[in-house]
């Protein structure tokens, strides 16, 4: 295989007419041109999440999250069963009649409650990353994904999410999953159908405090 590598690299430097450089200076560019000016982080995030067919709720603080989850599931006539990330262990779920377990999901778990690393106002997108207690399957296998989004974690655009990642986490975790609404397909007759292989519903609980 190393022969293949050497030959491919040789073809490239021959085509480019110079030996492969050890270092390359990047072209310095101004801040990326903005795709739509984000005027108000939170309002824009919510509006764009709706455009992606996510639903949202807004609560004052973390203590109000279990009631919001229960309200959403009951209103939508969804089962009160599922899994959640362990970071929400201290909240009072039982009082709301919710049977959410702190474990990785099985395929038949109905709801996955997760947090997020941050959220991006530019497109209404969540960023979740993998790690201990941060099951990636929890936002993928259950048909309903409920994500808790603290207002303080909403950034303007994707570059800021990467900057936050560099400063808070350091090296990139195994998976960065940018999630923008429920899964969908248009592969049959260009007709958009929500709920392809992933969740059919994404509900965002935006937390002010």
């Amino acid at each position: 295989m190393s022969d293949a590598r050497a030959r491919i690299l040789a073809r490239m430097s021959q085509g480019l007419g110079r030996p492969c450089p050890d270092t390359v200076a990047r072209v310095q560019r101004e801040d990326a041109p903005m795709a739509r000016q984000v005027v108000h982080h939170v309002a824009d995030f919510i509006a764009r999440a709706h455009a992606l067919q996510s639903t949202t709720d807004r609560v004052a603080d973390m203590a109000a999250v279990p009631a919001a989850v229960a309200r959403y599931l009951r209103t939508a006539h969804l089962p009160l069963q599922g899994v959640m990330w362990p970071q929400f262990a201290d909240l009072d779920w039982v009082a709301q009649g919710l049977a959410l377990e702190m474990r990785a999901p099985q395929s038949d778990d109905r709801t996955g409650v997760t947090g997020c690393f941050c959220a991006i106002a530019e497109t209404g997108t969540l960023l979740l990353h993998s790690g201990v207690g941060l099951s990636a399957a929890a936002s993928l296998l259950p048909e309903t994904h409920v994500a808790v989004v603290p207002v303080a974690r909403i950034v303007t655009r994707m570059e800021q999410a990467f900057a936050l990642l560099r400063s808070e986490v350091g090296s990139v975790p195994r998976a960065l999953n940018f999630i923008s609404g429920p899964s969908r397909t248009a592969d049959i007759e260009q007709t958009i159908v929500i709920g392809a292989h992933g969740p059919r519903r994404v509900h965002l609980i935006v937390v002010d405090g």
């Binding site: 992606l52 997108t125 940018f178």
Partner: peptide
């Protein structure tokens, strides 16, 4: 504006 999923692995 963005696809439903972008995964960086």
């Amino acid at each position: 504006d963005i696809t439903n999923y972008v995964s960086v692995l």
